[in-house]
Simulated assay, not measured.
Amino acid sequence: MFRKKPLWPKRKLVKEIPLNTHHSQLTFTIFDTETTGFAVGSHDRIIEIGAVQVKDRQVLEKTFQTYVNPDREIPFEITDLTGISNATVADAPTVIEAVQSFLHYSEEGEGDVWVGHYASFDLLAFKKEINRNQYRIDFPICLDTLDLVGYLSPAKHMLDLEIYASQFGSRIYERHQALGDALTTAHLFCELLHHLEDRGKKTLADLIEISNITKHYTKF
């Protein structure tokens, strides 16, 4: 039976973290992707990855950003939305090189837990790209700010990151760029942690109970 190659050592990403760990003791890697379209489960590809880290409700200075050569044309509407053109990615790394660089950034910063806004979309994009290139990987716990917002404000059902950031009074960076959206998500996440702690939700176990989408993407 054919076994896919590991993309990254499991022990370096999937850590044994006590569930009673207070969130202030964790380092969170907040990430985002831009893609050639929304059908990432089939034919669309990643064209940018951005990330930043949070610890003790503070956004750390060191960021990560890379364009990705998708090995296909970028539609005009995506270029219009993101500003990323075929020329932008012509000399960019392959998707596997880019993902490995992102994993190195997360590991180097001791990112215990990943966080995204509508993170299931980004994880599916990673999943398909990794599988397409005949690799496999185990990812760490991943939380979705959509779930955290939904817990705090159950009536909210929109996906729009900018609206949530505005409603929770957090900073808004340039939209539809992976690093800009990661930074916006990071500042929103810090605000959400304050509100969650006010409700007694302080530990990793609490955050996992509210949002652990990794259970659907444990091993790719």
Score class of each variant (00 low, 15 high):
residue 6 P to Y: 00
residue 10 K to I: 04
residue 22 H to V: 02
residue 25 Q to H: 14
residue 26 L to I: 02
residue 27 T to L: 03
residue 33 T to G: 05
residue 37 G to Q: 13
residue 38 F to G: 08
residue 40 V to H: 07
residue 40 V to G: 10
residue 44 D to V: 02
residue 46 I to V: 13
residue 46 I to T: 06
residue 46 I to M: 14
residue 47 I to Q: 08
residue 49 I to Q: 04
residue 51 A to Y: 01
residue 54 V to K: 08
residue 56 D to M: 05
residue 57 R to H: 09
residue 60 L to I: 10
residue 60 L to F: 05
residue 64 F to Q: 13
residue 65 Q to A: 13
residue 67 Y to Q: 10
residue 71 D to F: 06
residue 86 N to Q: 12
residue 86 N to L: 11
residue 91 D to F: 06
residue 92 A to V: 05
residue 93 P to L: 11
residue 97 E to W: 04
residue 99 V to E: 07
residue 101 S to Q: 15
residue 102 F to M: 11
residue 104 H to G: 02
residue 105 Y to G: 09
residue 108 E to L: 03
residue 109 G to A: 07
residue 109 G to H: 10
residue 112 D to T: 08
residue 115 V to S: 10
residue 116 G to D: 05
residue 124 L to R: 13
residue 128 K to I: 01
residue 130 I to V: 12
residue 130 I to F: 00
residue 131 N to P: 00
residue 136 R to A: 01
residue 139 F to T: 13
residue 139 F to N: 04
residue 141 I to G: 02
residue 147 D to K: 03
residue 150 G to F: 03
residue 153 S to G: 00
residue 155 A to W: 01
residue 156 K to D: 11
residue 158 M to D: 15
residue 160 D to N: 15
residue 161 L to N: 10
residue 163 I to H: 03
residue 163 I to V: 09
residue 167 Q to A: 14
residue 170 S to N: 12
residue 172 I to E: 14
residue 173 Y to G: 12
residue 177 Q to N: 15
residue 177 Q to L: 08
residue 178 A to V: 00
residue 178 A to S: 03
residue 183 L to N: 06
residue 185 T to H: 03
residue 186 A to E: 08
residue 192 L to P: 04
residue 201 K to M: 15
residue 205 A to F: 01
residue 211 S to N: 08
residue 211 S to Y: 07
residue 211 S to M: 09
residue 213 I to F: 01
residue 215 K to W: 02
residue 216 H to I: 02
